[in-house]
């Protein structure tokens, strides 16, 4: 069978790749994609812990459901912001969205 640590290391790698995308990408939609990868890594961890450590209690699955809801909300609001910013400034490059910096 598959050891639990394989799932944990896979999720850590997926999380780090998503973090790299969030930190290094210019396009706002690409930053949201990085966040999606990070949330998926969290979900893999939650389901793996549920299966290996406490499959009688449903806590891991319940939290995975909540992560799904949070991911859907995050992407809905994020893409609405992207479209709104694009309409006003003709750009979705994160470096150009600096009105609040000054």
């Amino acid at each position: 069978m598959i050891p639990l640590s394989w799932y944990l290391i896979f999720a850590a790698a997926l999380f780090s790749i998503g973090l790299f995308g969030v930190l290094s990408r210019k396009n706002a939609v690409a930053i949201l994609m990085g966040v999606e990868l990070m949330l998926n890594a969290v979900n893999v961890n939650l389901i793996a812990f549920w299966r290996y450590l406490s499959f009688e209690t449903m806590a891991g699955q319940v939290f995975a459901v909540i992560v799904f809801a949070v991911a859907a909300s995050e992407v809905a609001v994020g893409l609405a912001l992207v479209i709104s910013v694009y309409r006003r400034r003709q750009s979705i490059v994160a470096d150009d969205i600096n009105l609040l910096k000054y």
């Binding site: 780090s16 930190l23 990408r25 396009n27």
Partner: peptide
Amino acid sequence: QINSTWPLAAVIALAIF
């Protein structure tokens, strides 16, 4: 399509991994 500070981002991601 990528920031000029991407090496720093790679270092942070690798460190967390």
